[in-house]
């Protein structure tokens, strides 16, 4: 059980039966008045944002969430299929619950899947993933436009800016926290 003193950004609690994550928090106390705990929370299943203000003495149930190591298998329509590394059980995750992570899902990628009541509601991908460039325009020698990057599409369909020297078919490392190009993978 949490109290208002535990409230902080990132705390996961249960509210009206759903798991919520605190995305903004501020303590307020107008002169000589009572303490107010102002929170902004995101529903971890449907993404709805809530503003709630709590007072001293209120309590919260932790969100009963579980992290499991899984492997990405395949995409079907608008859901993605993963397999539990230990039980070999398969889980479907809706595209809407994946956020930016869907940009980095290639076959066999190891991820952490977040479960709420045995239902997968989100995933964490590694900080760095290697993806192959499937389309990018060649760099015209003598290009004087002064541009130091160009668009490239990787095998998942994700489009990002890469340095001009990157060519089609090359493998690049992407920082999944920012979604930006990191390095070229040699060989």
């Amino acid at each position: 059980m949490y109290t208002v003193a535990d409230l902080r950004k990132g705390l996961k609690i249960t509210l009206d039966g759903d798991p919520y994550i605190v995305i903004a928090f501020d303590f307020a106390k107008p002169g000589k008045g009572q303490a107010l705990y102002r929170t902004k929370m995101r529903n971890m299943i449907n993404g709805t944002i809530l503003d709630r203000t709590y007072r001293s003495g209120e309590t919260f149930e932790p969100a009963s969430l579980e992290d499991r190591k899984m492997q990405f298998l395949y995409k079907e329509d608008d859901h993605y299929c993963f397999m539990d590394n230990q039980s070999f059980e398969q889980f479907h995750v809706d595209e809407s619950a994946l956020g930016d992570a869907k940009n980095y899902l290639i076959d066999n990628l190891q991820v952490d899947v977040l479960l709420f009541k045995e239902k997968a509601i989100g995933i964490d991908v590694p900080n760095f993933v290697n993806l192959r460039v499937v389309q990018t325009d060649p760099w015209a020698k003598g290009d004087t436009s002064g541009s130091d990057s160009k668009p490239a599409t990787v095998e998942t369909g994700y489009v990002l800016r890469v340095p001009p020297f990157i060519e089609e078919g090359e493998l690049i490392t992407i920082d999944t926290r920012t979604g930006e190009y990191s390095t070229r993978v040699k060989g």
């Binding site: 106390k29 107008p30 009572q34 203000t53």
Partner: peptide, 11 residues
């Protein structure tokens, strides 16, 4: 609601 309105609407 004095404190709540003070914090959210007035301050």
């Amino acid at each position: 609601l004095f404190d709540e309105l003070m914090v959210k609407e007035i301050e």
